[in-house]
Simulated scan of single mutants.
Amino acid sequence: MINDHNCSAILLAAGRSTRMGTLKAFLPWEGKSLIEYQITQLKNTGVKDLLIVTGFKHKKIAEMIQSYDVQIVWNHRFYEGKSSSIRKGIEAANAKAKGILICAVDQPVSQITLNLIIDHFKKTNAPIVVPVYQQKRGHPVLFHNNFRQELLNVNEETKGLRSILQKFSHQVSHLEVDDPNILFNLNTPNDYWSQFKKPKGES
């Protein structure tokens, strides 16, 4: 694993969860709330600089995770979209961090896969690491600190992180993982229940 302070992780949890109909952060997931599951998995990788970007229902989320050793960053412009939360997280992240792992609360991934991504970054010094399952790219994505300014400039008009991945596609290191969870995107009740009801490890 990367040594302390060499990697920051940003967990985006600022959205309204409009399509889900209830706040995603509070959904049950493997015996915890979804946001607590995510925090636990990220903390278990050894990442110390963990930032949770909140927005909608900030006080409720902050209260739920107050016992965790994380930095809570409130994005008061969350209504502008995910890119505003990415920028807010990057602004608050450790400027000396070598890598920046960007995660979303509705895209749960286990610590095993997170460790694979971080270890691959450490071993290869890759500019960008993207996990892949059965030839499909997933999440989370780990960026070298050299992309800090690019990340500070993301916006919804240019499709957020996608624009960076397209512009610097020649610098992306694709990491094959045996984990279908990297493709999860829990946007709607159907998305959630289709995954929630499956036995652990089934794709």
Rank of each mutant, 00 (worst) to 15 (best):
S173M: 07
K123N: 15
I128P: 03
V154T: 01
T18G: 04
G138L: 03
I65D: 03
D191H: 09
K82A: 12
P189L: 08
Q135C: 06
E91Y: 09
P108E: 06
K48W: 02
G46C: 07
I164V: 10
K167F: 06
I39A: 00
A95Y: 10
T124A: 10
H5W: 11
L151K: 00
V132D: 13
V109W: 03
L27T: 02
L161R: 08
S110Y: 04
V47H: 11
D179E: 09
L50G: 05
F26P: 09
L34A: 07
L114V: 10
H174R: 09
N3V: 05
S17Y: 06
K96Y: 13
L114T: 00
I39M: 00
P127V: 00
A9V: 06
L116K: 15
G89D: 05
R148C: 11
A97P: 01
E36N: 04
G46V: 07
V130F: 05
K96R: 14
W74S: 14
T188H: 02
Y133M: 09
K24I: 05
F78L: 05
P140K: 02
S84P: 03
N155H: 11
G31H: 08
M64P: 08
T158S: 12
S169T: 12
S67H: 14
F168K: 10
L34E: 00
N3I: 09
K88G: 01
I164R: 05
D191G: 02
S194N: 14
V109I: 13
Y79I: 11
L116C: 09
G138M: 10
F143C: 10
R148T: 11
K159R: 13
A104W: 13
Q111H: 15
I65S: 02
I164P: 00
H58V: 03
M20P: 09
Q149G: 03
P180W: 11
Q134N: 14
K43W: 04
K159M: 14
R19W: 12
G160E: 09
Q135A: 14
N44F: 00
N3H: 13
K200R: 13
G15T: 09
Q135V: 02
N146M: 09
L151S: 11
L183M: 08
K98Y: 13
K48I: 08
V141F: 10
E30K: 15
L114W: 04
P189I: 04
E156T: 11
Q66V: 08
L34F: 05
W193K: 08
P108N: 03
T54Q: 03
V109D: 04
D4E: 14
Q71C: 09
